[in-house]
Design a protein around this nucleic acid. Sequence first.
RNA 1: GGUGCGGUAGCCAAGUGGUAAGGCAAGGGUCUGCAAAACCCUUAUUCGUCGGUUCGAUCCCGACUCGCACCUCCA
Length: 466
Amino acid sequence: MPLRLYNTLTQEVQPFAPLSDNTVRMYTCGPTVYDFAHIGNFRTFVFFDLLRRWLRASGFKLDHVMNITDVDDKIIRNAVAQNKTLEEYTAIYTKAFLDDCAALRLERPEHLARATENIAEMASAIHKLEDDGFTYRSDGSVYYRISKFKGYGKLSHNDFSGMVAGARVDVDNYDKADARDFALWKAAKPGEPSWDTEVGNGRPGWHIECSVMAIRYLGDTLDLHAGGIDLIFPHHENEIAQSEALTGKPFARFWVHSEFLFVEGQKMSKSLGNYYTLRDILAMGYSPEVVRFLLASVPYRKALNFTFAGLASAKTAIERLRNFKLRLETAKLPAGVNAAIADHATRALAGFREAMDDDLNTAEALASVYEYLRDANIALDAGEFQTGNLAGAHALLEQMDAVFEVLKPSASTDGMSEADIENLIAERTAAKKSRDFKRSDEIRAQLLESGVIIEDTKDGVRWKRK
RNA sequence: GGUGCGGUAGCCAAGUGGUAAGGCAAGGGUCUGCAAAACCCUUAUUCGUCGGUUCGAUCCCGACUCGCACCUCCA
């Protein structure tokens, strides 16, 4: 069966395919670069990456835009506090974000769109909304009048019909006509960055950038729009209101949302002391691919409980996969094909694909790989795994790694050269042969200290970096 | 209060109207000079509670209960 995704709009799992020319036009809500991104953010960004990879594995081409919000209240506040310009401040965290993404092996979207590079387009869109009567002004700011847009609430499935305009307006929203209304354009304030545009001097509201950049780079109707589940309301609801008012066409065919991440069962928050950036986790000695694997292995629509026990578990699980690959590369195999193992490889590959096609069920996809792994290891132990079984094993691993990408260790920063390692291993083997176990154990310890693990097998000694 | 999601072994986590995947941990074992590493085996008569439908329910329906998210900035 082809790829199926859960569409928040219809609240159903539906077959997914792009509308035209086999290219998926997708937009994902990226970071606001006011600080280092945390692991909760990366749960979502890892999900985007899995989605990208599986869409491509499904035979589609990608045209993917992700925004970088580089102007907003928090950024302005922090930049001012640090006596930096907006550009200086956001450059730091934009780079940090991209570095973190690279560490997590996240593919770069085809376009990264910065809000500040699309101000004129936003102003122009706001102007059009004003002309078409979707807005009103208050103290130089422009607000979207939600009551003008029928269908508001169709994504979040909220029914606002019983809501009396103004009835629940908070005191700090006194300048809005309706609690649901939101700012498209915020009038300039002294000491804050602003842009002089056709709708006045000021800066854009949060929601407008996504509508404008999505339409600018991808066209009026997207195939797919993704984000964290918390963005459904109001952000994505507002994007729909803006975009569909602008174009008169459906904004996105599929809306896909990833669930939240918790830390040790609790919502991550600075006050609880369980707030971690990716950098925090890496500084504790975990490798990026371990984090990636943990975030990827829980299906995206299920809340993920991030724990350090879970990280340790992910680390061991990856090592088992890597070790299997190492085994394939170093074992001396008899010629021929083991039909049962070959068949299992075929079934495992099909099972992996079917699980991924089923709304990206990564947990089930991995299970398919592990079941094969056990059978193959048993066959390897028994000497029944044959040269003709290598291709099937590698095909499965490659398919798995095309999605999860955890097999290749991150480049070690230090460590001895391969030649030195081989020399020491040769010396150890000689020492063992002459029953000089003291010397052989010394060498083993020395290698371990340099991060090299030795494994004695019946096919000889093999090694790997820690 | 409204909307939505979820409660499956010590932890993480799939799943189906026909009798519980997988990972980690734990225990046992193989291998080994000893280790390490690796590999294998074992580990839920039971799927929040109570009813209902059914020949049969963890899976369908209802009630209850617990937890969570969104409804305000938030991935």
